[in-house]
Computed example of a mutant assay.
Amino acid sequence: MSYLNNVVGYRKDLLTNRSVVKKDNYVLLDPDGLVKNVIPGFENCDVTVLASPKIGASFVDYLVTIHADGKNERGFGEEGIETLLYLIEGSLEVKAGEQSYSLTQGGFVYCPPGTKLYFQNKSGKVTKAFLYKRRYDRLEGYEPYVVTGNANEMEWIKYEGMEDVLIKDFLPKELAFDCNFHILSFKPGASHGYIETHLPEHGAYFLSGQGMYNLDNDWVPVQKGDYIFMSAYSLQACYAVGRDEEFSYVYSKDCNRDVSI
């Protein structure tokens, strides 16, 4: 039952859900079950916190439904915190500090720490966005900066040389950035080349298709609208299932820094 699919109140069938929560390891969130969180500054918006330090993440991911004239004039972000907004559907007017941008589906804005993100939905239609925030890991001699673009205008790159697995990077590969964001897409039947085991964490929102995901050697079905969190060193890989639609997701990755001890 969820506000996202407008299934609330009495249910005739058994209460079931595909979600799996293994704190400090991995999480799968089925949208049927997500609830709204009241977050100061978000007006006429439905906000769900997807991942947070309470499940073991070093970041916070949000799913935000922005209704007509929905907005955040308070500003998202604070000193020491970097943020990103990716537009899943619709259009949105966004400000990063003093600079304004008009985003359409696939558009994104990254704000460095200390630069607040503001937005307003002037389209008259419902808009959906994926939001991210994380404490920036500062590196002496380097300063991150505002980055904006649209994933639909970016070129696909072969993922580790595979023709049927493609990726897009949102941020420049520079040491000023301690994270990056990607869209990874699999044609039906395609898969990772191996089960990955690595330091970076991921938060991933599924944009299209269906797949089977290996999460710490548990194979779980996932599809458009699902969300997964993968902690450091949690085993991970997937393959795409279905007939026609590509299996794709937008996700974050921490990078470009040594490990603190």
Rank of each mutant, 00 (worst) to 15 (best):
G56Y: 01
G107Y: 00
Y3K: 04
L184W: 11
G225Q: 04
G193E: 09
Y10H: 11
A96E: 01
G56P: 03
Y233N: 12
V126R: 02
N256Q: 14
H198D: 12
D226C: 12
N214R: 02
V259N: 12
S58W: 03
G106M: 05
R134H: 05
C255L: 13
D32S: 14
V21S: 08
D61W: 09
T16V: 12
L166Y: 05
C255M: 13
C45M: 01
S248I: 04
E153K: 13
N44D: 08
I167Q: 02
G90A: 10
T104M: 07
E160W: 06
V109P: 01
E79A: 06
K22G: 07
Y26S: 00
D24W: 03
V27C: 03
P200C: 02
Y62V: 06
N5D: 15
P221A: 14
L199I: 14
G106Q: 05
E201R: 05
V8H: 14
E196G: 03
A237E: 00
D254G: 08
G41W: 01
Y136L: 10
G124P: 02
I183L: 11
E160L: 13
V49N: 03
D164G: 05
A68I: 05
F119G: 01
V259F: 15
S231N: 15
M1I: 12
E82M: 08
Q105K: 11
L117V: 00
Q210G: 09
P200F: 00
I195C: 07
G106C: 09
T148L: 06
P40S: 08
S123G: 09
S191A: 15
V94C: 04
C238Y: 07
F108P: 02
K173D: 14
C111N: 00
L4M: 02
G242M: 11
C255N: 08
D226E: 13
W156K: 09
M212T: 12
D32P: 05
D30P: 06
R134M: 04
G203E: 00
N6W: 10
S2H: 03
F59W: 00
L131I: 11
G141E: 11
L117A: 00
V109L: 03
N121G: 03
Q105M: 14
P40A: 03
N17M: 12
Y205S: 03
